[in-house]
Amino acid sequence: MNETVIEVSNITMRYRLATERVDSLKHFFVKKIKREIRYENFFALRDVSFSVNKGEVFGIIGNNGAGKSTLLKIIAGVLKPTTGAITRKGSIAPLIELGAGFNGELTGIENIKLNGLLLGYSKKFINEKLDEIVEFSDLGKFIHTPLKNYSSGMKAKLGFSIATVVQPEILIVDEVLAVGDINFKEKSEKKIRSMMEGGTTVLFVSHSLGQVESLCDRVLWMEHGQVMRIGASEKVIKEYQEASKSK
C-alpha cells in the first residue's frame, strides 16, 4: 500500500526579474546590444523534494509567499520547474483556482460545460453528470443566470462542484474550503473526506492549522521556498507555531 503517487525531486523555480520591463523588439535589441539587460534572480522554490504515498493526506503550511501556491501549480502542471523533476501517477483534480476559465457572459450551465472541458472531461461525461453538479452546487434557479451576476462565493461553489464530480486519484486543495457559507463548507469537507476514504491522495494547503491537523497525516512546512520540516502533522505544526511566535 506504500505506493508513491507524487514524487517531487529537487525542484527549483527561478524567476528572472528583469530590472526593467522590455516588451518591444526594438527596445530588446537596443538593450541587448548595449548589454543593458540585467536580471535579478528570485527563487520561489529552492531544491524542494518530497514524496507522497497513495491514499495519504498531505498538508502544506507556511507563511504567505513561502512558495506553497507555486509548488501546487507545478504539481498540477500549470508551471514547469526551472530544474528538477516531478512524477505523478493518476488523474489530478486541481482545486487551485476555482473557476479559472469561467466566462462571465455565459450562464452557470454553459460554464459547467466549458469548465468541464477545460478540466479534460469529455462532452458525454459532462452531460451525464450535469444534474449531479447542479444539485451539489446548491445554486438553484441561479444556474441559468449569467455568471457575471454571481457572488464570489457562488462562483466558488460552482467551481468546486465541477472539479469534484470525478473521483480523482490526486486531489489538490488550496484554501478553497474557506469560501462558501457554513452549509457548503460542511458539504465540501464531507465530500473531500469521502474521497479520502475512497483512496484519493490529497494535497492540502491551508492557513487554518486546526483544519490541517485534523485532516492531514503528514505536513510539509515551507519557508522562503525551502523545505523546513516534513513529518507527522502534530509535531510539525507545533514547531511551526513556535517558530512563528518567536519571530
Binding site: 498540477a76 502542471g77 500549470v78 478540466l119
Partner: peptide
C-alpha cells in the same frame, strides 16, 4: 492568458 496562467490546458 488568464486561462493559461491558472489551469493546465
Amino acid at each position: 492568458g488568464q486561462l493559461i496562467k491558472k489551469v493546465y490546458v
